[in-house]
Design a protein around this nucleic acid. Structure first.
Ligand SMILES: [Mn+2]
Ligand SMILES: [Mn+2]
Length: 302
DNA sequence: GGGCCGA
DNA sequence: TCGGCCCAACGCAGA
DNA sequence: TCTGCG
């Protein structure tokens, strides 16, 4: 029996997978047991992007063909060793105790809870009003991944000019995320302003291809650069998170060089562990330790 | 998925 | 003891 | 305040 240095009993973090043969992604198929193994295999790469961040979950206890729902509050029956952090939710007039996934036992426990999607906040729990990630969310019109790729190159060019390090990942859907870790120097409204300026620069270069139009009708077949994934209340699907879709796609880090030769469907619960095991790109392992500083030029402009 | 409640 | 019921989100911008 | 959107 393990003990803390204070001599009290440490709680056991053993997780039993209930109904291990139940199929969560029947088309592949992926059982609950196989899902737990997936999570374990990606955990060294995935956990750093979940750690200290309030987590929003998409659960589907009967698998992707069954009912699915968002869940923000930790279940009341969660074990004591699952970390939570309390955040007021003004619109719901209550406080929400978010799960904060700090370690593999928690990740496995969430997998057993049929959490099929992990959406983490671009802020860490000790400074909720100071985002540490800037997110460029690239949303192409229906089934137009190639357009998202073209916009990604434009965004990367602007980020490069600003001296900001960043990583690219598929979302598991048709879009892309470009994430730039930043020093926690500015509050969320200043960050939103910076994202708006950055978006305006990209739209200015290719107004035929990119828009920041919020209403779908106004997008007129263009790619939307969606600034709303920034700030305290925002969430972004985590790298290595699966999607609750029939084809079991995964949000997967890719390099700029790979962009023109890949398809989001290439990266699934089946292929990603194999990909990671092979020598190759670091898949955001190195990005964890990098941080850029938003240039004042971007913060001043409207 | 799992707590809860009534039969 | 067991089957069924019930619950499980929110922030934000624009109109 | 309500709706669209993610
Ligand atoms: Mn998106
Ligand atoms: Mn059920």
């Amino acid at each position: 029996m393990s003990e803390t240095s204070a001599g009290r009993k440490a709680p056991s973090r053993a997780v039993t997978i209930s109904r291990p043969d139940k199929e969560l992604w029947p088309d592949i198929p992926v059982t609950k047991q196989a899902y737990a193994e997936y999570l374990r295999s990606v955990s060294p790469n995935m956990l750093p992007w979940l750690r200290d961040r309030p987590l929003t979950m998409v659960r589907a206890p009967d698998g992707v063909t069954g009912e699915r729902y968002f869940q923000k509050a930790a279940p009341t029956y969660a074990p004591a060793w699952v970390m939570t952090t309390r955040i007021p939710a003004p619109s719901a007039k209550r406080d929400v105790d978010y799960v904060v996934c700090q370690n593999l036992p928690t990740l496995t426990w969430l997998g057993n809870q049929a959490v099929l999607e992990f959406h983490s906040a671009p802020v860490r729990r000790d400074r909720l009003d100071r985002p540490d990630l800037m997110v460029m969310d690239i949303d192409p019109p229906e089934d137009q991944f190639e357009m998202a790729v073209e916009v990604a190159f434009l965004v990367l060019e602007v980020l490069h000019d600003l001296g900001l390090p960043s990583g690219i990942k598929t979302t598991g859907g048709k879009g892309l995320h470009i994430v730039a870790p930043i020093e926690r120097r500015v509050d969320q409204s200043a960050l939103r302003g910076a994202v708006a300026s950055l978006t305006a620069i990209v739209v200015g270069r290719r107004p035929d291809l990119v828009t920041d139009a919020f209403r779908k009708v106004r997008r007129e077949g263009r790619v939307m650069l969606d600034p709303s994934r920034n700030g305290t209340g925002a969430t972004i699907v985590a790298p290595y998170s699966p999607r609750a879709r029939d084809d079991a796609t995964v949000s997967f880090p890719v390099t700029a060089d790979e962009l023109r030769s890949i398809s989001p469907e290439d990266f699934t619960l089946r292929t990603v562990p194999v990909s990671l095991a092979r020598p190759g790109p670091k898949r955001w392992s190195a990005l964890v330790g990098e941080r850029g500083r938003l240039p004042s030029r971007l913060l001043r402009s409207e």
